[in-house]
Design a protein around this nucleic acid. Structure first.
Lengths: 345, 345
DNA sequence: GGGTATAATGATAGCGCTTACATCATGCTT
DNA sequence: AAGCATGATGTAAGCGCTATCATTATACCC
């Protein structure tokens, strides 16, 4: 195991050439005679030689390795982003390492030190919804990271950040969702968001408001609550909303920030004896792999996270400094239905 | 962005010492006077200097980076393993990179070349259930990888492989599951496995057989089918089983290889108009995050995958060459219930 | 106080590559 | 046949560290 590997000197000696020549064939430079190239290739083959990316990196300053920062892979949303990014990186000959970190808790473990020592060729940072007062803090962290390597952002990025980024047009997405539900006759449409609001126009909660306006529906504050974006939080949020309203005011549709929250909503609806979708339509976002297997199967938005991850890698490596938007698809399933016009109960 | 970083020479010059001394304080060697150490620390602070792990790796042969090979992160089972491994690695000062590869398709993209160039300090390989004729192939691939770095395996490892490994005692686990169901009165217990059987005694399907024997139940071949371990496959497998049997012979309980398969089973049961758990108990394995949110909530086995990942890292870095087993917990939820003794229909 | 163990520091040789730059055959030009 | 691009190879200087010596300063002993 781990027997000391051959070096470029060994190959040069074996092939009877200088290390510069070996290096040339390794990097497939043009000016090498085919006879020499052949000799070298054979020596490489014979010793099963692989150039050390470490040594290469020291000299050439490029390490062919990227990093990605995200809160947690256990959330399939991030697993999709990671997968998309990782696959794209691999295709381009890059390795991808994970540095878990949530932009929500800026005080916790900070990967900056570890990142600074690794000489990565680039870094992708998944930014979570930020409470208003976190904007500055997170921005400072990002600037610090950028001192060491190029950075591309993914997610809900405050508009004033001067970073290349890939995201969905969340507001437009939510406007479409509201229109979709309204098209089925829903007028009492609730929204269960993530952390508390701020004024970022790219946010989903803002899109929800705009959607109501487009549909000429009143904005009812009680229909809009916030949670932590988890299933438990989603369940608690809907539960509280229902408990706080007389039955006649209960919403007929609820839009969840993401599928985890939607799962919690389904659970809460079940506990309140609400039939989904007959009495309550539920729509999620992210289209997690389990969405079709919930009951009822969850209508959701496929946000093409893998593509988002892949694009981020492309931006990173191309050096283009711009913001991009990825399309989405409404996945119609059983959890949303036209509003029930028969008398309830 | 990416302004050329300070080097050890810059720090040495700033602090008025030699690079050897700077290196000493970096590695917190004892023989440095506190005055000198202080000077150096200040220079480091002032220039915001971080030693290059690349250069370090070249000299010291240790790169503080590990790799992990697994089929796909989109399967939460692997996301859990990765997370456990990654977190443990981070705690120990190591970075973790992902190399996707399934031991099932040995012919597809092979990460060996990329791995050989990276001078990783170790590699974790998640081995999937192997069809009999794959044993040798995969073993050869693993030996090839071990030429470059230490390897620790996770998962269902053929007993004759001479590699350190971490896994569950799958057979014992399945024996317990059969006993659990039998204890609720079930006698017609089906099993939906992964790839076709072989004789590996650590496998879940073998444990299923043993469990039946322990309970003095007959082994009925029609109750045991195989799929690909996905939700779709699970659904198709149960569907076919039911279609192939007269209703009176339908199993009253089904054990799924994992939660994905179990999700498929729930779906199939729904389509066949079977009430779970009144007419059919379903039990999964892995305890995915969505298990409690399925309906009915899925009874499953928590196999502590994160812990498995963490242990693998510990074995890797400690150099211990042995096999380990991780405990599991039965998570009782609503999808399993005592067998229904009333007349059906 | 001369001699010796010990702590503190410096000089320097790699680690395994890439990359100017130098060298040396070739073949073509005129 | 002298002159010169051009192609093919070699030489050697780093890249930013670690690690082994060698060297010097400090302390301690009889």
């Amino acid at each position: 195991m781990n027997s000391e590997n051959a070096t470029i000197y060994d190959i040069a000696a074996d092939a009877g050439v200088s290390i510069a020549t070996v290096s040339r064939v390794l990097r497939s430079e043009p000016n090498v005679s085919s006879a020499t190239r052949e000799k070298v290739m054979q020596a490489i083959e014979r010793r099963n030689y692989r150039p050390s990316s470490i040594a290469r990196g020291l000299t050439s300053k490029i390490t062919h390795s990227l990093g990605i920062i995200l809160p947690k892979l256990l959330n399939p949303h991030y697993a999709m982003i990671f997968t998309g990014a990782q696959e794209e990186a691999r295709k381009l000959g890059y390795t991808m390492s994970l540095f878990p970190w949530s932009s929500l808790d800026t005080d916790a473990y900070n990967p900056a030190a570890m990142l600074a020592e690794r000489r990565l060729d680039g870094l992708i940072v998944c930014v979570e919804y930020l409470p208003p007062d976190h904007d500055e803090l997170v921005h400072a962290s990002l600037l610090a990271l950028r001192r060491y390597m190029p950075v591309v952002l993914i997610g809900c990025v405050p508009p004033w950040y001067d970073f290349p980024a890939v995201s969905n047009d969340n507001a437009a997405m939510m406007r479409q969702v509201v229109a979709y539900l309204n098209g089925m006759g829903h007028e009492k449409i609730a929204f269960i968001g993530g952390v508390q609001e701020d004024k970022d126009p790219s946010r989903r909660d803002v899109g929800y408001e705009e959607g109501l306006r487009d549909a000429q529906l009143p904005y009812i504050a009680s229909y809009r609550v916030y949670g932590k974006g988890t299933a438990e939080a989603g369940k608690a949020a809907l539960d509280e909303m229902l408990k706080g309203l007389k039955r006649e005011y209960w919403p007929t549709a609820v839009i969840a920030l993401n599928d985890l929250v939607a799962m919690g909503c389904l659970e809460a609806a079940r506990e309140h004896g609400l039939d989904v979708p007959r009495q309550l339509s539920v729509i999620g976002c992210d289209d997690l792999f389990c969405a079709p297997y919930l009951s009822p199967a969850l209508t959701s938005i496929n946000t093409h996270q893998q593509q988002t991850g892949a694009r981020a890698v492309q931006l990173l490596l191309s050096g283009e400094r711009r913001r991009e938007t990825v399309a989405w698809d409404l996945m119609e399933r059983a959890s949303c239905a036209p509003v029930n016009t028969e008398t309830e109960e």
